[in-house]
Amino acid sequence: MQFHISRDTDRGLCHCACGRQDRQLNTYDWLYDVPGNDEDTDLVEVQFKNTRKGYYHNVNHLDLQKGDTVAVEASPGHDIGVVTLTGRLVKLQVKKANLKSPDEIKRVYRIAKPTDMDKYYEAKSREHGTMIQSRQIAKDLGLQMKIGDVEYQGDGNKAIFYYIADERVDFRQLIKVLADTFHVRIEMKQIGARQEAGRIGGTGPCGRELCCATWMKNFVSVSTNAARLQDISLNPQKLAGMCAKLKCCLNYEVDDYVEAGRRMPARDIILQTIDSDWYLFKTDILAGLVTYSTDKSIAANLITITAERARAVIEMNRRGEKPEALDEGDAVSTQDRPADLLADADISRFDKAKKKKKAKNRPNRQPAAQQREPKQPKQREQQQPRP
């Protein structure tokens, strides 16, 4: 990621939206228009490449705004980053990051000069070549790891190697070889498959950019129990995302399904009527509808009722009463159900259109009997003059 910020124009990243990876950690500053917001604290939030950001003291009292490119204190030397947050909200972010030691918060040196940016661009131009060469070094050492990205510090004195590994890796020898090869200070940082997918980016099956590449920065563990609660088929190919892990969006609506599922009757309860016993066949949690069958293993005489009616029948059965019909006074109208526009559609209709198009574009071939040489026109015989 390279920063091209002009101080003559807006001087700031968007504070009310999320974008690509350069704004992935952008926080909505809901205190930006409060008078005296910038004077409350000298802390500023600075973002670097990928999902790395830090908090620094503005000891020189610079007029910093969102989007300013600054040179900050690093160990060793200095680093180049972009200011993404100022004011009172930074103190809340520091508390959220759990930075208790004052030594963890360094200083902002200055607004980046042209000489600083030249060093920065020169260091960034070496990142791709360093990554390719380091992969070969790790392969020669027989290490079961993948180096996914390399980030050089703004002054080029330090390099962070982001790697993925399924098991514990002893990379002490690797650090020595990398330090001798590139002559910089080496830092190894392990990332997961989700962070790797967010770094690369892509388009999900929903048609939008990956959440981990746009707005997500905190990854929560996802289990198959989230799919079970939503009655989603446990198909690994459909549940897995671009990172080959369970999709993060499986957790988005779990709470709603859990809350709605509490209002549904239990699966093991049998409803009894005067005619027969009814077994739960399927449930529509969000719509609040349940379907019962007279057979426990197959769909027979299916009747769909509301969850309120099912609970009412269960209460009647507890009192020893049995209704005449399961859907008595609670017939679910089919007009209220959402209509599936593709229910009666033929999924092979597109294939048929292709076949017709191919047949239409195919050149007409005449039968072999018709492929004959054209007949030569008969020449008129010259009439001989009569004697």
Rank of each mutant, 00 (worst) to 15 (best):
L178A: 13
A197H: 04
Q153G: 13
A193Q: 11
D170V: 08
I186V: 15
V150Q: 00
L178Y: 09
S134D: 00
M145C: 05
V169D: 08
H183D: 15
A165C: 11
A159I: 04
I191H: 08
I175F: 07
K189T: 09
G156Y: 09
I160S: 02
L143H: 05
M145I: 08
I132V: 11
R172Y: 10
E187G: 02
I200M: 08
Y163T: 01
K176P: 09
G198V: 06
L178E: 10
I175S: 11
F182P: 10
Y163L: 04
F182I: 11
A193I: 10
H183S: 15
D149K: 03
F161K: 01
A159G: 02
K176Q: 15
A165F: 04
R135W: 00
A165I: 06
Q153E: 14
D166I: 05
A165V: 05
I191G: 05
V184N: 14
D140H: 12
F161P: 01
L141Y: 05
Y152H: 02
K158S: 02
G154D: 04
D149L: 00
I175Q: 06
A138H: 07
D170P: 10
F161G: 00
G142M: 10
A159C: 07
D149R: 03
G198I: 07
I137S: 06
I164N: 06
K158M: 06
R135D: 01
D166L: 09
R199S: 08
Y152P: 00
I137V: 14
K158W: 01
Q195C: 07
G198M: 10
D166S: 14
H183Q: 15
R194C: 04
I191T: 07
G156A: 14
F182A: 12
G192R: 09
R168I: 13
Q190S: 13
R135F: 00
M188Y: 01
A193H: 08
F161L: 01
D155R: 12
L174T: 09
E187V: 09
I186Y: 02
S134F: 03
I200S: 02
I132A: 03
M145N: 04
A138K: 05
A159Y: 00
A159K: 00
A165Q: 08
Y163H: 06
D155G: 10
I200L: 09
V184T: 15
Y163A: 03
A159L: 02
Y163F: 15
I191C: 09
G198Q: 10
L178S: 11
N157I: 07
D149Y: 01
D155Q: 11
Q173Y: 14
Q136S: 09
R135Q: 13
A197K: 05
I160P: 00
E187L: 10
Q195K: 10
G156R: 06
K189I: 08
A138L: 07
Q195N: 14
V150W: 02
H183C: 15
K176A: 14
D166T: 13
I160Y: 07
K146E: 07
G142S: 12
V177R: 15
D155I: 10
Y162S: 03
Q153V: 10
Q173V: 12
Y152N: 00
S134E: 01
K176L: 14
D166K: 14
Q136D: 11
K146A: 01
I160D: 02
L174P: 08
R194I: 12
D140A: 12
V184F: 13
I175P: 04
F182L: 14
I164K: 11
D149M: 00
V184D: 12
A179F: 11
L143K: 03
I132D: 03
M188C: 03
L143E: 07
I147D: 01
A197M: 02
K146H: 07
S134K: 01
